[in-house]
């Protein structure tokens, strides 16, 4: 009986002491080198970002080492724009992504083609002398 009581008290104390410590590890100074590399574009504003956003961005860095160089490049290029979105916009983007993932591959390919054409048209309009199409990011 005494052992069980001690066990319960120890568990509660551990939970109460570990959770705040875990929250404190989210400041930029305490990030791992890998996390800093992945989130480098946000280094300046990291400590001012809302806690929930930092937590989610830290979640994305878990898969960062497994990304291809092209994916890493895209990730870092989009990170700043992503962090500037409002929570509602990010939620909408997630919903759209989930909906598109469920769409048939041919529909998805069609959309990609359409986006590529739009990008090319935009690029041609901004620099008429350049014939090189813009790479899709």
């Amino acid at each position: 009986m005494r052992f069980i009581r001690s066990l319960i008290i120890a568990t509660c104390l551990t939970v109460l002491t570990v959770l705040p410590a875990w929250a404190a590890t989210q400041s930029w100074a305490l990030l791992t080198p890998m996390q800093r590399e992945a989130l480098a574009p946000l280094a300046q504003q990291w400590d001012t970002l809302p806690e929930i956003q930092r937590k989610r961005l830290l979640g994305t860095t878990k898969r960062y080492p497994n990304l291809t160089p092209l994916q890493k490049e895209r990730f870092q290029a989009r990170l700043t724009d992503w962090s500037k979105l409002t929570p509602a916009q990010r939620d909408r983007a997630r919903e759209t992504y989930k909906a598109l993932r469920k769409a048939p591959p041919e529909k998805r390919e069609e959309l990609k083609k359409m986006v590529r054409q739009q990008e090319q048209a935009k690029s041609a309009a901004s620099s008429p002398s350049s014939a090189v199409p813009a790479a899709t990011r």
Binding site: R56, L67, R74, D81, Y97
Partner: peptide
């Protein structure tokens, strides 16, 4: 829930389609 959201986030951030398509 956070892990699922992070998975979707990284998929959006590394996808072939640009960010504005989703936003």
């Amino acid at each position: 829930a956070d892990r699922d959201t992070s998975d979707v986030d990284i998929a959006i951030l590394t996808d072939d389609l640009p960010l504005h398509v989703y936003v």
